[in-house]
Amino acid sequence: MRKTDVVDVAARKLAPYMFLFGLYLVSYGDISPGGGFQGGVVVASGVILLAMAKGSRAVAAYFPLHSLSLAETVGFALILAAAIAGLLMGAGFLADIVAPTGALRSITNAPFAFVMNILIGLKVGAGVSLICLTLFGESGP
């Protein structure tokens, strides 16, 4: 695939804002439209954009495949741990173990949803990036 300067510059200028927007979607998922899945996919699309412009090998230097794999599995293990914690505390599987506060606060008043959004965002971002980098690595430069 022939690369042009336009793709190169646009990807390098745009990717940080895509990462930022993805993290915003993840962390504000319980307040404004967004959430763990959507934000994670936006972060992964930033990784994919960099991989399209710079090649999957250069991106794998910043996001090593084994680290992404580790983030995916550790993210799932933490989600499972949060789910089982509700079981151990007698509230049921995946129950909201942190009681939601009634008062509206600026950051979050649903701590359980906030933490789960971050865990799901980590897992989905790492997983989708891992799938795409693996696919690019087979046929790409």
């Binding site: 307040i31 439209p33 967004g34 959430g35 789910a83 995946l94 649903a110």
Partner: peptide
């Protein structure tokens, strides 16, 4: 659920089990 975004209150509150299944699918 405490979530001001009602979509979040559904997918992490009332239907958290479905979200858990989606993470397993991925």
């Amino acid at each position: 659920t405490g979530a001001r975004n009602l979509v979040t209150s559904v997918y992490l509150g009332y239907r958290a089990f479905d979200t858990f299944g989606e993470t397993i699918v991925l």
